[in-house]
Nucleic acid binder design. Structure first.
Lengths: 297, 297
DNA sequence: AGCTCTTATGAATCATTGA
DNA sequence: GTCAATGATTCATAAGAGC
């Protein structure tokens, strides 16, 4: 069965919304990707779930997610435990163990390496520049389209570098965009390889650059910062779905997942408890749709 | 109390060795850094501890480690759970929870991003290119010398050196006659910033390049590859200890921790169960000592 | 000595085969 | 069936040979 409506955002508490079986029939979603509220964050909307209560709060939601996900689908959760009392909290670890008891397979943990992380200075730690992207599935075999996220081959193609003189180095450093850059990028495009499980979006261009640039200029929303950037859901969508598949984000926020889905010609479904976020998400997605029509076709 | 001997490697099972109180008095070690055998690895030496038994096996060891670590010391464990039956194993998660019950504070989880990870291609996952470096302490306040691991920053420098191996880097600067060499010296004196909690040794050079290069040429051991490269223990040593401090590796292997300690003028202690590894570790450390005398002084 | 090119090999994982 | 051993797959680095 298919959901009775797709490409829609429902306002409400996702535990309740997900239980509506005509809207969310079993085995109907190809990919669930979300960044749930972290413990003690988003206090206004979700009442600031404490770390001690986090697993208890999440399990009814993940039970519904398990029901509605296709047997060959994937569930990707972007999360990072915050620090409390000088220690990393343990609720993410406990959540992984509990999800396994619920029937989920903990297939992989991707590392999202974000170099431009939040600023700050503490005496007992450095800035946190990575987050977990937990990959759960219902079965050992699931849909995975690895070719769609291939990246240019690594820099060991520096045989190219070695043939260069010191002059070339200096010119590269001083000159902004010399022919050096173009040559190398040409060379690199000759061969593509599979990526690994650290997502480093600053170095690699997983979204087609032209699409990305056009889009960035077309819809720039500085008012609110997304929980995750467009690249993150886009990467997993390309990896685990094909065009026309249905992708769900039960904590839709300002609609980043929906925007990525539209750009990649997938169908989205979203749930969001905050009315303000719902409005903004709908608006953002509308902008993306308009952009796709005008610029890409 | 101080250990009755330092700069020594004991052969034996570390659970038993650590209990010898004259050799390992309580509150006597400044930093414990180790990469314990991963589950089902190193079968010949450690009997291949299975994931199900891993926590049970490790807890008696960590109990002794807690006893001998100074109250302001740190315990850094490099580990990564492997895949079994298509899923990531959970023994590392369980170990973290159990260590907390034992009294340890789980202060931080650093991510070691290793780009030269094992090759391979599978239908359900990509290559694993990161490992956990779990940071445990006995107290909220502990010794941390953040300034000692600051990294040079520069708009061009990072981009420039990203694609160079240490060897290239060293070779390049050693030709100081060139203009490029002078540029590099400038780079070394540039403004420095604090790193973050992703260790990315390809991009940053945490060991002084000259030391690094001289050493690489002086002692190259092909026979055995270290579990972790010299940079990893070096980085944590600089961060959590000062010259003259005592550093313990209860799973010494071929002595990488000891080599780093000698290079950084710290004292080391090690335990290793394999006689062959003990010999090689002693030999490696001897080489480093000789190197330090001849090349650096 | 310095550069180019070749070759070997990693804390891996999965499917298949054989006991 | 269950478990163990083997082969296939793959990318980046470093050592070694040759000029």
């Amino acid at each position: 069965m298919r959901p009775n409506q797709i490409n829609i955002i429902y306002k409400g508490d996702c535990a309740k919304r997900l239980a509506e079986e005509t809207r969310f029939p079993k085995n109907s979603i190809d990919l669930i990707i979300t960044s749930p509220p972290y413990a003690d964050r988003r206090k206004t909307t979700y009442g600031g779930i404490h770390g001690d209560k986090y697993v208890e709060w999440f399990l009814p939601i993940s039970k519904e997610l398990y029901r509605i996900l296709k047997t060959n689908g994937s569930f990707v959760m972007n999360i990072k435990e915050n620090v409390e009392g000088g220690e990393r909290q343990t609720y993410v670890l406990e959540l992984i163990l509990s999800l396994k008891e619920q029937g989920w397979l903990w297939t992989e943990e991707y590392c999202w390496y974000k170099k431009n992380c939040h600023p700050g200075k503490w005496i007992n730690r450095f800035r946190d520049s990575w987050e977990r992207c937990l990959h759960f599935t219902k079965n050992k075999r699931f849909k995975m389209y690895q070719d769609s996220v291939k990246v240019p081959i690594g820099d060991w193609s520096k045989r190219r570098f070695k043939s260069m003189t010191n002059k070339d180095f200096v010119r590269t450093i001083s000159g902004t965009k010399s022919k050096f850059g173009r040559n190398v990028s040409n060379w690199l495009n000759k061969r593509k390889v599979y990526p690994h499980n650290v997502l480093d979006f600053e170095n690699e261009h997983y979204i087609e650059p032209t699409t990305m640039v056009h889009f960035a200029t077309a819809c720039s929303n500085r008012n609110h910062s997304a929980a995750f950037p467009l690249e993150l859901p886009s990467w997993f969508m390309k990896l685990f779905t094909r065009k026309g598949d249905i992708i769900l984000d039960p904590f839709m926020g300002i609609g980043t997942t929906g925007m990525a889905a539209v750009l990649l010609e997938r169908n989205y479904m979203g749930i969001e408890i905050s009315g303000e976020y719902v409005r903004e998400a709908r608006n953002n997605i509308k902008k993306v749709k308009r952009f796709r029509k005008t610029k890409l076709h």
